[in-house]
């Protein structure tokens, strides 16, 4: 019996139990091998349940368990750091035929994965309000913003922020239309924030190292710059100007 045979049979319940695994009386330990199979499946399922509670709530616990049972066999963790296991779940949800009628689920999962990443991201002291206030508008427009490591942007054609809030905070029933979501972590607790019109394009350009002026251009007419800057500042999202 090799490690390869053991590992393959662990993840595939259809495979026979490898020979040479025995009970105390020397007979094959088939049922006992299932304990390891179960430990692996339950351990990975629990990690995904902990990471994607809103997706689980939306599809129901039984559907979620059956679905991640398929996911985890196709996508076992590639890292020993389980806190971020499930990074491939959003793409899996998008390609999972039984969920074709729920096209917003992958973006809900992206919010949840972003919250996990944000929670464990590095701590960097944010820029003080004073430094920003002392910089003239003309100078500011030519600068690039260095964003804090916990900041994440999710741009969606679906009202995913409303969906997330409705399921976590008991917010109002979501309407229709696209929403751009910014995850910020002032202190230790990340939260998703709804960006105003143009905010997604603005942040997307800033993340791509554009200047503030270029990002404002991309945001289009009617973009509420003060509102977004105020959100970034209160969320500890700006760590420097370049």
């Amino acid at each position: 019996m090799t490690e390869a045979e053991f590992a393959a049979a662990l993840l595939d319940p259809q495979r026979p139990v490898p020979a040479g695994l025995i009970r105390p009386d020397g007979t094959p330990a088939d049922r006992r091998f299932d304990i390891y199979r179960n430990n692996v499946a339950v351990g990975l399922t629990e990690a995904l349940r902990a990471g994607f509670p809103v997706v689980e709530k939306l599809v129901g616990a039984a559907f979620f368990a059956a679905m991640v049972g398929i996911f985890l066999r196709k996508n076992p963790p590639q890292s020993r750091i389980m806190m971020l296991y499930g990074d491939k779940l959003p793409d899996f949800l998008a390609s999972f035929p039984p969920l074709a009628a729920y096209p917003y689920l992958p973006d809900v999962a992206r919010i949840e994965q972003s919250l996990r990443e944000s929670y464990h991201a590095a701590d960097v002291e944010p820029l003080s309000h004073e430094v920003l206030a002392e910089t003239s508008e003309a100078v500011l427009l030519g600068r690039r913003i260095r964003l804090a490591p916990p900041v994440r942007l999710i741009r969606s054609p679906w009202p995913v922020h409303s969906i997330w809030c409705a399921n976590v905070d008991g917010g109002p029933k979501p309407g229709a239309g696209p929403q751009d979501v910014l995850v910020l972590r002032p202190g230790f607790d990340p939260r998703p924030h709804l960006l105003p019109a143009g905010g997604g394009s603005f942040l997307s350009l800033l993340m791509g190292r554009a200047t503030i002026a270029e990002a404002i251009d991309a945001a289009g007419p009617g973009f509420d710059l003060p509102a977004v800057l105020s959100l970034l500042l209160s969320g500890g999202a700006i760590t420097g100007l370049e």
């Binding site: 019996m1 390869a4 053991f6 590992a7 662990l10 692996v40 590639q78 389980m82 296991y85």
Partner: peptide
């Protein structure tokens, strides 16, 4: 052991 061929199995598995 807990990894095989790049996959992490998240369990403590036995060896002969």
């Amino acid at each position: 052991w807990s990894t095989h061929d790049g996959a992490y199995l998240n369990d403590l598995l036995p060896l002969p």
